[in-house]
Amino acid sequence: MKLQDSVIAITGGGQGLGRSMAEHLAARGATLALIDLMPEKLDEAVAACKAAGGDARGYVCNVAKEDEVEKTFAAIQADFGKLNGLINNAGILRDGMLVKAKDGKIEKRMSLAEWQAVMDVNLTGVFLCGREAATRMIENGDQGVIINISSISRAGNMGQTNYSASKAAVAAMVVTWAKELSRYGIRAMGIAPGFIATEMVASMKPESLEKMASGIPLKRIGQPSEIGQTAAFIFENDYLSGRMIEVDGAMRI
């Protein structure tokens, strides 16, 4: 798929990896439909994409709400007349131990609210946006690509029962959708980032960052631009489907 003039929707596109991927794709000539809950962040991201050389529009939407997702993708269709790609990037963290005890006494348990909040955004949001994007692509007769952003934590990570489960699930969706949607000319792929220098990571203490980097075989934290490069590679290689690309500096070898 050629990125030039392609319309690509990105959830969580107002900041972090979403914005970084959007700017990278905009520089390659793509048109971005950025979806986020924060209007001010969307405005900044749209301006950055335009400065990078591509067109962009922002859409305020809670990806966990079916009616909002349907309205948002209808608006994208109305605004651009087509949809060529979707990056399911929106996600949240609510980390905590499943059960925490001291001297045989339970001090804290992961609450159902903490579990459900992560599932609503990280899993249900991916399902809703993926379904709506596929619907639009099929109705338009547009060949397209859906990319799910997973994580190396999908293999299981201490303190992340909810997050790890959600990221394992969206990885499974990649394989399922690749098999189901190929007949319509739609590919599905996934990216599993390791530790990436987003705003949240960059705000950590230097000693914490150094300790984190020391555990990575390449001895450094990944850059957001490297995730954008991976997304562009997926869009442009028409024989990639049903697979997960790990961008983690060899952490999971």
Rank of each mutant, 00 (worst) to 15 (best):
Met1Asn: 10
Lys2Thr: 13
Leu3Glu: 05
Ile8Ser: 09
Ala9Cys: 10
Gly12Gln: 04
Gly13Asp: 09
Gln15Cys: 10
Ser20Glu: 06
Ala22Gly: 11
Leu25Ile: 00
Leu25Glu: 11
Ala26Thr: 09
Gly29Ala: 03
Gly29Cys: 01
Leu32Phe: 09
Met38Cys: 12
Asp43Gly: 09
Glu44Gly: 04
Ala45His: 02
Val46Thr: 02
Ala47Glu: 07
Ala47Gln: 11
Ala47Ile: 04
Ala48Asp: 00
Cys49Phe: 02
Lys50Leu: 03
Ala52Ser: 14
Asp55Asn: 14
Val60Ile: 10
Asn62Pro: 01
Asn62Glu: 01
Val63Thr: 10
Glu66Met: 13
Glu66Trp: 08
Glu66Cys: 06
Asp67Leu: 09
Glu70Arg: 15
Ala74Gln: 15
Ala74Thr: 08
Phe80Tyr: 11
Phe80Glu: 00
Gly81Asn: 04
Lys82Cys: 13
Gly85Trp: 01
Gly85Glu: 06
Asn88Tyr: 07
Asn88Lys: 03
Asn89His: 04
Ile92Glu: 06
Asp95Gly: 05
Asp95Val: 10
Gly96Asn: 12
Leu98Arg: 07
Val99Leu: 14
Lys100Ile: 03
Asp103His: 09
Gly104Cys: 09
Ile106Phe: 09
Arg109Pro: 05
Met110Asp: 04
Met110Gly: 00
Leu112Gln: 13
Leu112Tyr: 15
Leu112Asp: 13
Leu112Lys: 11
Ala113Phe: 01
Ala113Arg: 09
Glu114Met: 05
Met119Leu: 14
Asn122Pro: 10
Asn122Ser: 00
Leu123Cys: 11
Gly125Ser: 05
Gly125Leu: 00
Val126Leu: 06
Val126Met: 14
Phe127Asp: 13
Arg131Tyr: 02
Ile138Ser: 08
Asn140Lys: 10
Asn140Ser: 12
Gly141Phe: 01
Val145Cys: 13
Val145Thr: 13
Asn148Gln: 07
Ser153Phe: 03
Arg154Val: 00
Ala155Ser: 11
Ala155Gly: 03
Gly156Ser: 03
Asn157Thr: 12
Asn157Lys: 05
Gln160Glu: 14
Asn162Gly: 00
Ala165Lys: 04
Ala168Gly: 15
Ala168Asn: 12
Ala172Pro: 00
Val174Phe: 02
Val175Asp: 01
Val175Pro: 01
Lys179Phe: 05
Glu180Asp: 14
Gly185Gln: 01
Ile186Cys: 01
Arg187Glu: 05
Gly190Ser: 15
Ile191Pro: 02
Ile191Arg: 00
Ala192Thr: 02
Gly194Thr: 04
Gly194Asn: 08
Thr198Cys: 07
Thr198Ile: 08
Met200Ile: 02
Val201Ile: 13
Ala202Gln: 14
Lys205Leu: 07
Glu207Ser: 11
Ser208Tyr: 09
Ser208Ile: 10
Leu209Gln: 13
Ala213Lys: 01
Ala213His: 03
Ala213Asp: 05
Ser214Trp: 03
Gly215Gln: 04
Ile216Gly: 08
Lys219Ile: 01
Arg220Glu: 12
Ile221Tyr: 12
Ile221Gly: 06
Gln223Phe: 00
Ser225Tyr: 04
Ile227Cys: 04
Gly228Thr: 06
Thr230Met: 14
Thr230Trp: 07
Thr230Asn: 12
Phe233Ile: 15
Phe233Arg: 06
Phe233Gln: 13
Ile234Phe: 08
Ile234Lys: 08
Glu236Leu: 08
Asp238Thr: 15
Ser241Thr: 13
Gly242Pro: 02
Met251Arg: 09
Met251Gln: 15
Arg252Leu: 15
